[in-house]
Nucleic acid binder design. Sequence first.
DNA 1: CGACTTTGACCCGCGC
DNA 2: GCGCGGGTCAAAGTCG
Length: 358
Amino acid sequence: MEKKNENNPMANMRFPDEIPSAFGGGGGGSIFDMAGTSCEGSGGDKWGSLGFMDLLGIHQDFVAPSLFDSFQPSILPPSSPPLPVFHHHDDDILHELHTDSKQKHLNHQAGLLSPASTVPESSEVLNNPATPNSSSISSSSNELAANDEQTKAGDDEDKTKKPLKPKKKNPKRQREPRFAFMTKSDIDHLDDGYRWRKYGQKAVKNSPYPRSYYRCTMAGCGVKKRVERSSDDPTIVVTTYEGQHTHPCPIMPRGAIGIAPDSSAFGAPSFIIPQPMYLNHQQQQQQQQLQPYIYNSTPSLNITTASSNIIHPSFPGFLQEKPRFSNPNPSALSHRDHGLLQDIVPTPMRTEAKEEDQ
DNA sequence: CGACTTTGACCCGCGC
DNA sequence: GCGCGGGTCAAAGTCG
């Protein structure tokens, strides 16, 4: 088998530019271009020090929408509203993503993607993640993760079948808060600045695309991430994060600004706005081209939600596995602070999407 | 040699 | 209770 970058069958996969726009009819969605940003700041190297997860560290209740919203402007043209499909809790995610137990990820994908937009390929966040509940996370995520590991290590007795795999057997397996978001990208594993190790891959029912499981390689950090491609729209990658990083972004860009590790780690919603994300020329052009396809309900982004009060309109952003570009994008900046909360596709929309799926 | 991916098997929860 | 499917483990293999 091949290695790196080919790790994931889909990693190298290229999908047609034409997007089925199967999701949702609803309407467009927010699209974030993840291309040029991240802790790593490759190319541009000026990004926030903390990664995506750090941002996520904010309280769930606030969240994502605003977060991403704010994020979006920096990378996307003003006319692309976000697609908030975020969840507060694991359960929420599961419920929203999977309405029916059996058709879990069918609906899951459909639900998430519902408001998808017909945007040309490239990587763009289609929806906003829900930030895990910081309070629960601080005590549950990390600790749970730790416990998880410990438990696993110590629970050999539970399993007798195969000595090789003394899996743990938690009384009540508690999952850490999770949130999912979609990205439009031909790359499955988006680089958010953290280091991930793939620990599994499973075929997804009713989907030709497998789901990959990643775990933060940082010792003691139990953050996991699930990446799968939408069967409806292969250009869309659904990423689900679980838990919170107990450490700052490993990749600290020079002059980086970011969220204080402490706060992020424990959910304190204190953000330091990283510098705006820039798109290189190519990206800018791409963005411009994308505009027409992007859900264009409002001219600017809206970050002013209940959450926006707390959350700053900034987002470290993601990096494509492959370094992208970074060019100053004034226009993007100018929109950073303007959100489209109203466009953020609140509950109603999501509901709608779900209904559609059903 | 360490870090990482691949992959088959196993565990577990849930619905029937 | 059984089967299904999601999630995880860990040996083996690959790469730098």
